[in-house]
């Protein structure tokens, strides 16, 4: 039987951590883009667009992420399309992230005083121009802290991709545990690595939030 030293375990976990980071970045980046499009739809005051985004958000916020992963992994396969765990995880996490980001950002947009909309309307700006030049530059300042805060949830969310067989940090931990039978050591290391990824982000989010509060 293969022998695993502490360093073997750690280095294997760190290699898998790369995939956790890559998956998080892609989910966050793509989720951000989809979220921005949804944000425009959600605040457009065009009824069908608002309804679509409301239902979309309710669905992705109101069902477990794990179930969404299963739907993408097994559901798409029903249509005869082969889906890799990688693809399913990316899609599910992107949509899930976008739903939460849209809601976070909508709150920030709604925090901008109505007078800003009325003044820019009166200057003949269209809705897209108002968002682009007047509302988002102000809303994005207050959005930074909660957005960074949410990125922690995305990182933790990627752990669920292990269940459909995507080899990231959690999956690697499970595999190493099966090979070494040292669950306490392995999972302690896994937890420690997650903590090292998440803590700086939540610390940073708290710091920006504090700074904004002082500025008011």
């Amino acid at each position: 039987m293969l022998q695993f030293s502490f360093w073997d375990i750690l280095s294997n976990l760190l290699i898998a951590t790369q995939w956790t980071i890559v998956l998080s970045l892609i989910a966050f980046f793509c989720g951000g883009i989809v979220g921005l499009v949804l944000l425009f739809m959600r605040t457009s005051r065009i009824a069908p667009l608002e309804w679509f985004t409301k239902i979309y958000i309710e669905f992705f916020q109101g069902t477990p992420l794990l179930m969404q992963l299963f739907l993408f992994f097994f559901g798409i396969a029903l249509f005869g399309v082969e889906v890799s765990p990688w693809m399913a995880a990316t899609l599910a996490l992107t949509f899930w992230t976008s739903a939460f980001l849209t809601e976070i950002w909508r709150g920030c947009v709604e925090a901008i005083p109505k007078g800003q909309w009325e003044a820019s309307s009166s200057l003949a700006l269209s809705y897209i121009e108002q968002m682009r030049y007047v509302i988002l530059p102000q809303a994005s300042r207050i959005a930074v802290a909660p957005t960074v805060g949410f990125s922690v949830q995305v990182i933790k969310g990627t752990a669920l991709a292990s269940i459909i067989g995507f080899v990231e940090l959690t999956k690697a931990g499970t595999m190493l545990n099966n090979a070494t039978f040292r669950p306490f050591l392995v999972y302690s290391l896994v937890a420690l690595i997650y903590f090292c990824l998440c803590f700086p982000l939540s610390w940073w989010a708290k710091k920006i939030e504090g700074r904004l509060n002082v500025a008011r």
Binding site: P113, G115, Q116, E118, A119, S120, S121, S122, L123, A124, L125, E129, Y133, V134, P137, Q138, R141
Partner: peptide, 30 residues
Amino acid sequence: RRHVGMVFQQFNLFPHLTAAENVMLAPTVV
């Protein structure tokens, strides 16, 4: 609205833009 301007009780200037940028926004964008 290009021909009908409006000034409000609460000014409603865009706080992230300078005075000149506030004034330049609509001419450049619209």
